[in-house]
Simulated assay, not measured.
Amino acid sequence: MIAAAVFVIFPLCLAIAAFSDLFTMTIPNRASIILAIAFLGVATLAGMPLFVMGMHLAAAFSVLAVCFVLFALSIMGGGDAKLLASTSLWFGFDPALVEFLVYVGIFGGIASFVILLIRTQAHVILAVGLPIPNSILLAKKIPYGIAIAAGGFIAFPSSPLFIAALESLK
């Protein structure tokens, strides 16, 4: 049961956040809330020691603090900040957190470049009628939830709970 929760909840919440950000330029709060609550439940059921859970919470709050500064400077959206922090909760202060954040940065850079390139050709894309969401063509923001989800998907196999869930299946 724990393995099923780990393998379903984390990727599903990230996928919902990414698709929502792509089409509406918003990330539903419920995705971040479910990620946080599910982590606490799964970690407890998996027998994660309280100290380790505390370190996971400290990692998430550290990421949230940095994101809060970026939000205050209008560099990052609030939904992106909450999603990044709640996703970081699943990685804790572990090398997997660094891996996750590096992947988010890489995918964020690629997504930003591609979206900005698309926006330079928005008039052509609209004239031809290509099926690209208006949020990509016309918004002033970058849907960073896509990069957070992609980074999470790639780094997730290195996360402590993913590894523990695999061990429980053996």
Score class of each variant (00 low, 15 high):
53 M>Y: 01
38 A>P: 06
154 I>C: 05
130 L>F: 15
48 M>L: 14
134 N>Q: 11
162 F>S: 03
58 A>F: 15
50 L>V: 12
54 G>Q: 14
167 E>C: 01
36 A>I: 09
5 A>E: 14
11 P>V: 03
146 I>V: 08
80 D>G: 10
40 L>W: 06
43 A>K: 06
17 A>T: 09
16 I>L: 14
27 I>C: 07
79 G>V: 11
96 A>Y: 11
34 I>Q: 05
156 F>I: 07
128 V>T: 10
50 L>C: 01
117 L>K: 11
153 F>H: 07
4 A>L: 15
11 P>F: 07
34 I>S: 04
157 P>G: 14
91 F>A: 10
37 I>N: 02
46 A>N: 11
6 V>H: 11
56 H>L: 11
164 A>F: 00
135 S>W: 00
75 I>R: 01
67 C>S: 14
91 F>D: 07
161 L>C: 01
62 S>H: 03
113 F>E: 04
105 G>K: 02
126 L>I: 10
156 F>R: 08
94 D>C: 09
54 G>K: 14
36 A>D: 05
69 V>H: 04
145 G>W: 00
48 M>A: 12
78 G>A: 12
18 A>D: 07
155 A>D: 01
24 T>A: 10
29 N>L: 13
27 I>P: 08
17 A>Q: 05
86 S>R: 05
138 L>N: 01
107 F>K: 03
132 I>K: 00
12 L>I: 12
166 L>M: 08
48 M>S: 11
114 V>P: 04
158 S>N: 09
143 P>H: 00
61 F>D: 05
45 L>A: 15
160 P>I: 03
76 M>N: 05
112 S>T: 15
33 I>T: 10
159 S>T: 02
98 V>G: 09
5 A>G: 15
42 V>D: 07
153 F>C: 06
44 T>G: 06
22 L>H: 04
11 P>L: 04
60 A>K: 08
116 L>M: 09
84 L>R: 01
130 L>N: 04
74 S>Y: 06
44 T>C: 02
45 L>W: 11
103 Y>P: 00
83 L>C: 10
6 V>E: 13
28 P>L: 09
88 S>G: 14
92 G>F: 12
18 A>E: 07
24 T>S: 14
93 F>I: 14
37 I>M: 12
15 A>P: 03
60 A>S: 15
138 L>H: 02
46 A>H: 06
19 F>H: 02
168 S>G: 11
29 N>M: 12
143 P>Q: 02
74 S>D: 13
38 A>M: 08
50 L>F: 13
58 A>N: 10
